[in-house]
Amino acid sequence: MNTKMNMKLVGVLAVSVLLAGCHSKSNTASETDSALNGGVQSSSTAIPGSEADLAQNVGDRVFFDLNNSELSQEARQTLDKQAAWLKRYPAVRVTLEGHCDERGTREYNMALGARRANAARAYLVALGVDTDRIQTVSYGAERPAVLGTGEAVWQQNRRAVTVVAQAGS
């Protein structure tokens, strides 16, 4: 569901690119990239192979059910695209951050976040991404993506986010 939202966002960005960026030659490369990327329209704002590129054009996060670290069909589709993207940019290293909603305790959330990050990592590795390129961390419930309380908030906070590591790190 959230992926659909992201797609909408990407759509809006793509339209704005078409409106605003007609004269820019630099758009061509990313539009070509996007063609390779399951036909997702690309934004001109993201440098290829960057964090923003991943977030805008691939989807940088997958979501989980309460107290659960199993990958849904939707999560697998996102990770399929992430794996393809990672193969296209072999120099890119990523950190998979596991997060939880606020409905757990401190310690359990730390462990659950680690299990979510590991589930996403294991899937990427199974698709052929080199294990050395992916490290994991859990933030438990300490870094919510969306503030507040209630299921609409919680479901966006139960996530594993793929973050591009800074060069040299």
Partner: peptide, 9 residues
Amino acid sequence: FSRALGADT
């Protein structure tokens, strides 16, 4: 204390 290694803690 506890340690998370892979999926297990």
